[in-house]
Design a protein around this nucleic acid. Structure first.
Length: 701
DNA sequence: GTAGGGTTAG
């Protein structure tokens, strides 16, 4: 005789489950306050046969899968013991899996239900399966499910439709989201919220705001979730005036100030550049600090307002206080702060922390890691992360293209862009900015021109002012100054400061003084306080020996109350970032640093090196002092400190706030050879990898 | 004869 497939029991399987609906043991399930009690009831149900009643078993599965005592894994095991699970039980697991870290299980269960379930999915099944498709970012799958929804007659269900709007928005297919939304015969607040948020998330910010107004007109009362979407749109528009209006709207309409809503307001002010409003709100929020979201808001506020040191200080405070555990959002912002500082060691530490905590890499984290490793000079590591993930969205691709570009690997950036197309990921306007910047760093003129045309014609992305600036940069660096000027003259919008800045840089490179004066004056009309413009023009004059013009310019700077932005370089040693200003003597190892510089100078002289003083602002007339001024450039102090403190096999990674001057560039090249060191320098525009006496930029920057 | 959906970040 064949062995029975179910455990041997004396109990009879009960098919008429109605009988047990109000069984006292079943009603006890909901009263359990810990998992031990739940397991006791479970045992009792097995003993008396109640477990084999589908209704009672479903209540048990529900408790395991969805209550605070939940263990989805255990719920699955219990489910597999039920001889004939009812649709309710199936739906419980489908629902719980959709919002679990492995939404794929939701679909596996759905398929199992279709094949062996013996019951058809109902209106409670579909919303979760659609949600899981959205979380898996699987457009084809979701579309297929949408087809089933129509076929099975659930397309008029409010919940199903709302989920479909959510799904299509998540996949970036706003046309379909709008179509579902407008085909609905009734819409509730969730329908509107999903639409407002979907529009805002996909960058249709004006339409999101319009949708919010329409919602009001149609007599629906917006709630906190609606306002989060509207604020997200404000942040993306950088429209602080409207943002303040929304803030007061929330207060006058007494909309529930959930923590997420508070954070969204905070975030909006930060994005609009109003740290004053942000700080005011944050101080009011302090009592809820044990919540990670509030910490996140503060960290990201500092990070996004250009105060990365403060952001990291808050992160450390959070770690020390143990008030709350960092989550994905915390790490994204903190990684971004590391990117700004070039703090490789701290950034890598966060990466290790994530692995240790078993955090799943979401797309935001992947982007942040790729960005951090790229900007900290470790392109190899950035590529490793990029290659290790199989789902890449437009942000991940764009970040990697930017990374390759800033390291002077324009050709590889273009190859990656082609791969991105093979992967059928639609490039955004940011992708093209990064791609054009990559062409610029590598001097790829024809490729740049081609992409500039393609983005408009093939991808229907109209070039913005930033794309024009890149294009002017590409043409200008290559010496095609006339083409650059033509392009500016034919721009459909007013050329911004970035466009004139690019032209000015090109003029400096090619020593075109007339055009430089024109570019500089145009730039100063827009930004009268722009240090860089004065410095660049002054360098051009100095290059040509027009000292009278230099001093005239210096006077003009003084008149508008400007000082040259001091050069500042940093180098990270053992996780600590050391900062040096030009001519700095504040560092405790100051004496050693200067004697190292003397040694470097002597060795350089020995190999016949002569310094190039053409780029100095004419601060000092004496030859001797001029040499001294170069000598004191912040990147050299950082370099000397790196030589003293880092082991011979450790690369010296320097971050500078301004562009590296030509003389320092030559010196660092020589040092990399004489001292057999790998030196990575990040300046305001790009990376320079020095090794064996040459630089990855091929002296083109 | 049990039940469900939408929110902050790069």
């Amino acid at each position: 005789m064949a062995a029975p497939s179910v455990p041997l029991t004396n109990f009879v399987t009960v098919n008429n489950d109605r009988y047990f609906a109000n069984h006292p043991t079943v009603t006890l399930i909901e009263k359990c306050s810990n998992s031990r009690q739940l397991k006791q009831i479970h045992a009792q149900m097995l003993r008396c046969g109640l477990f084999f009643d589908p209704f009672s078993a479903s209540k048990l599965v529900q408790s395991y899968a969805l209550s605070e005592l939940s263990s989805l894994h255990y719920a699955y095991k219990v489910f597999d013991q039920i001889p004939q699970p009812n649709l309710y039980s199936w739906n419980i697991l489908i629902r719980a899996s959709a919002s679990s870290p492995q939404p794929i299980n939701c679909l596996l269960m759905f398929i199992r239900l279709l094949h062996v379930g013996g019951e058809k999915p109902n209106k409670f099944t579909y919303p979760f399966v659609i949600k899981a498709s959205a979380k898996l970012d699987d457009f084809q799958l979701g579309k297929g499910i949408h087809g089933m929804v129509i076929k099975e007659g659930f397309s008029s269900d409010l919940f199903v439709s709302n989920c479909l709007i959510y799904f299509y928005s998540e996949c970036g297919c706003l046309d379909m989201a709008r179509r579902v939304f407008s085909s609905m015969s009734e819409r509730d607040v969730v329908s509107w919220n999903t639409m407002v948020n979907g529009l805002a998330q996909n960058g249709y910010v004006d339409e999101a705001v319009e949708c919010f107004h329409r919602m009001e007109e149609e007599g629906l009362k917006p709630n906190d979730v609606t306002m989060v979407g509207v604020l997200s749109a404000c942040g993306k528009k950088s429209d602080v005036k409207f943002g303040r209006w929304v803030h007061s709207y929330i207060e006058t309409n007494r909309i529930r100030l959930s923590l997420i809503l508070c954070n969204a307001i905070l975030d909006m002010y930060t994005k609009c550049g109003s740290m004053k409003d942000a700080k005011k709100l944050f101080d009011k929020m302090l009592p809820s600090k044990e919540d990670i979201a509030t910490w996140n808001a503060l960290i990201s506020a500092y990070e996004q307002s250009g105060n990365p040191n403060e952001a990291i200080a808050i992160f450390n405070e959070l770690q020390l206080s143990k008030a709350s555990k960092p989550d994905e959002v915390t790490l994204v912002s903190t990684l971004s702060a590391c990117s700004q500082l070039g703090a490789t060691e701290f950034g890598s530490w966060i990466h290790v922390y994530m692995k240790k905590e078993g955090m799943r890499l979401n797309r935001h984290l992947v982007t942040a890691l790729v960005d951090m490793y790229s900007k900290c000079g470790d392109l190899h590591k950035a590529l490793e992360i990029f290659n290790s993930v199989d789902k890449r969205d437009v942000f991940v691709w764009s970040a990697m293209i930017a990374g390759l570009g800033m390291h002077g690997r324009g050709g590889d950036a273009i190859k990656l862009f082609l791969k991105m197309q093979e992967a059928k990921v639609r490039p955004s306007s940011v992708t093209f900015t990064n791609l054009l910047a990559a062409c610029s760093h590598s001097g790829l003129v024809e490729e740049g021109r081609e992409f500039f045309v393609q983005m408009d014609q093939n991808y229907k992305i109209a070039p913005g002012v930033e794309h024009y600036a890149c294009m002017v940069d590409i043409l200008g660096r290559a010496g095609l100054l006339e083409d650059a000027v033509d392009l500016i003259k034919n721009m459909p919008m007013a050329p911004g400061a970035s466009v004139w800045g690019a032209l000015l840089g090109a003029c400096k490179l090619h020593r075109n003084v007339d055009l430089a004066e024109y570019a500089c004056n145009s730039l100063l009309e827009i930004e009268p306080q722009n240090h860089g413009a004065y410095v660049l023009l002054s360098n051009i004059y100095a290059n040509l020996g027009k000292w009278d013009k230099v001093s005239e310019l210096r006077k003009r700077m003084r008149d508008v109350g400007l000082k040259k932005e001091p050069g500042c370089s940093s180098v990270e040693v053992n996780g600590v970032v050391h900062e040096f200003l030009v001519g700095d003597s504040r560092h405790p190892l100051c004496k050693k640093i200067y004697s190292k510089l003397d040694e470097v100078a002597a060795r350089l002289k020995h190999v016949g090196y002569v310094s190039d003083k053409s780029q100095l602002l004419q601060l000092v007339k004496e030859e001797d002092m001029q040499e001294k001024a170069l000598y004191l450039h912040s990147e050299r102090l950082a370099l000397a400190f790196g030589l003293i403190t880092l082991g011979p096999s450790q690369p010296i990674r320097i971050v500078k706030n301004l562009r590296v001057c030509e003389d320092c560039h030559s010196v660092i090249k020589l040092v990399s050879k004489l001292y057999d060191r790998e030196i990575v320098l990040r300046d305001r525009y790009r990376f320079h990898h020095f090794r064996g006496g040459s630089c990855s930029c091929m002296d083109y920057w």
